[in-house]
Amino acid sequence: MRGILYIIFLITICSCSGEESSIGPLNSSGAGGSLARFTINGNLMYVVNNTQLKTFDISQGNLSEIASVDLGVGIETIFPYGQYLFIGANDAVYIYSMEEGIPTPISTYTHATACDPIVVNGNYAYVSLRVNSCGQFTGENVVEIIDISDISHPVLIKSLTDVQSPYGLGINGNALYVCQGTNGLKIIDVSDPKVPVDINSLAVNAYDVIITQNRVILTGGDGIYQYDISNSEALQFLSKIAVGQK
């Protein structure tokens, strides 16, 4: 009898964790989109762990915690834009203001369950939703374009369904870069976000991207690629640092 009780007890305590199934830093299966755990704005550093948003003062070089806010479970990523913090969680995108230093909640966009980097440009936020992201089935592969011109009322204005397994996103002026894992990189003109137009695509493993000074740096499954884009969005190969290479 004791044995049965023990077994039931073990099943109870050990299987509870199933529902959390979020991408953790130790879930390093291949090159996933980058998982941001903190971001810096001025002299303040914002750190997300699974449930909290913590604020550190870093003006003196050390880490001095000045605030901690409980957000619930399932926080995956954090992205700063202007005076706002976009926090991607399992159930929603939370928008906080950094205007007062210590973050204050502004609004919640519940349609998305965002595990992947969110990018923001001007009045629009872009969120990639991937089937099986966060280890849970989200239903479809889509990049959502959200109008945030009224930051307290984010509104979905367009779902880009013509994307495959979207991971990291990048924005360069009016060009949205969508990393599609093994399905390559896609570049979409979003100057009219309601009528996005495909510009270019590249057959390369693409998981994350940064765009800086006319250069695109791409994290692929097999290496880091650099391209020159000074000539519009036509990517000119510069170099590759291969996985396995010193």
């Binding site: 830093p25 130790l26 390093s28 291949g30 090159a31 996933g32 980058s34 998982l35 941001a36 994350d208 940064i210 800086t212 740096i217 994290t219 290496g223 880091i224 640092i241 291969a242 996985v243 396995g244 290479q245 010193k246």
Partner: peptide
């Protein structure tokens, strides 16, 4: 000393340097 890249994660530009996280 430099190590082979195994599992590239976050990348970061700092001055003339390119920093590449290798997960864990």
């Amino acid at each position: 000393n430099d190590q082979p890249i195994e599992n590239p994660g976050k990348i970061y530009i700092y001055q003339q340097y390119l920093l590449i996280n290798d997960r864990l």
